[in-house]
Write a protein that binds this DNA or RNA. Structure first.
Lengths: 220, 220
DNA sequence: GCAACTAATTAGACTGTTCTAATAAAATCA
DNA sequence: TGATTTTATTAGAACAGTCTAATTAGTTGC
């Protein structure tokens, strides 16, 4: 008996927890664009339902049950994104908002069919892993482009944020998942990187952009 | 700024109006499985928004505005049903419930893409016409199987109800849209029809079933 | 360690959507 | 036409989800 609303709270807690293992009311409020007192009262409700662990004035954590529910919503979201890109011809910068609506559809058949038609994908169009039917998810060990040094050659594997504007910036520069990137130089002052790929002329990427790009060393 | 709820009321009024041009509170209540006082108060809200014409103790009618909104929701519903059947491999008996959820997605791009991928279909998997982007819909002149006489040969064109059970009954009997049906006899007492099609042995269909099957004379 | 700031909570209100119980109007039918 | 049944309405309550304003608890910086 999940409401749309509850699912959005769980998803937000899940995403924020990914970094620190917990989320505080203030962050949730900003992320969901819902005022703090509202978030606060919802935390009590989620705690009553044993979906989160909540004590006054402390950050919240998902319970095992809450984590599983959140992961399954994220599974639906990411399967949908993949379907929209692979089977319907949308761009990776167009699918987030649509998937946010479709993820709330209550029909396991529907998502099972997507999964099957896609050949049981492990990642979404942004390189993020798709949790399995039990809510288990495996993050391959990537690192941020930011953390690379001059001379490194790496493969673009995923983005950590999927905002329209960010993805369009990458589109314009023809940077796609799988692109092999060579770091030509790193500006000491502000972290701006100059990179080369696809035999194009060098591109410069700001620190903020490099912080949102995940890469793997060029082996496999 | 349509809510999910409002859309469901409009759709119900639209569907009930198809027959008589108007709908009363009692019917709406049964159809939506929402109690009469709730429906009643919603009628006032819809009237305030100029979506329906409502006077106490009288049936409601959609305004031009309300009719257009309803038709556009039905467009989304039927496009979705067609997509689920044609592009995802669902059966015509499986798609109604899923489409009821997806029809509320707010993204014209999403439905435009479906429409395009489907080659701009004019009918849904149950033979019902899909309203165009302006909410205009054309019903070809079909008649009920019920109204046919012994000896008539007709083509199965559409169903007037899409309940699971009804469609499964047709599945079991291999009755599909396009099937050419010959009426062998009609039972005078209860209207049961004996029909023949696809070179199978004759089948008997109850009056209720025949009432929900729309057919065309066998010309075009 | 206190002042100032930030984060979190409480209290109370409002909207949307639903309900039940009671009442009233309209329709039916004998 | 008057009694009965059906349909519709009003009144009032409830819950989910949101808000603002006021208060309290923690945190940070001298």
């Amino acid at each position: 008996m999940n409401t749309h609303t509850e699912e959005n709270y769980l998803k937000a807690i899940y995403n924020l927890s990914a970094v620190k293992g917990e989320a505080n009311v203030n962050e949730l409020s900003r992320h969901l664009e819902i005022k703090m007192p509202t978030v606060n009262s919802m935390m009590k409700r989620l705690a009553d339902k044993k979906l989160i662990v909540y004590e006054s004035y402390k950050p919240v954590r998902l319970t095992t049950k809450g984590e599983k529910e959140a992961a399954l919503i994220i599974r639906k979201h990411r399967l949908t994104e993949m379907f929209l890109v692979e089977k319907m011809g949308f761009g990776w910068d167009e699918v987030h908002g649509i998937a946010e609506q479709i993820e709330h559809v209550q029909s396991s058949d529907f998502f099972a069919k997507m999964d099957e038609l896609l050949g049981f994908p492990k990642i979404d169009p942004h390189g993020s892993p798709i949790p399995d039917k039990n809510g288990k998810m495996e993050w391959t060990e990537y690192h941020k482009l930011n953390e690379c040094k001059t001379g490194d050659i790496v493969i673009f594997k995923a983005v950590t944020h999927s905002s329209d504007d960010f993805l369009k910036l990458l589109n314009v520069r023809e940077l796609q998942l799988g692109t092999i990137i060579k770091i030509k130089s790193v500006e000491a002052f502000d972290g701006t990187m100059t990179i080369e790929y696809n035999k194009r002329k060098p591109e410069m990427l700001s620190h903020l952009v490099c912080d949102r790009i995940l890469v793997a060393n060029r082996k496999k």
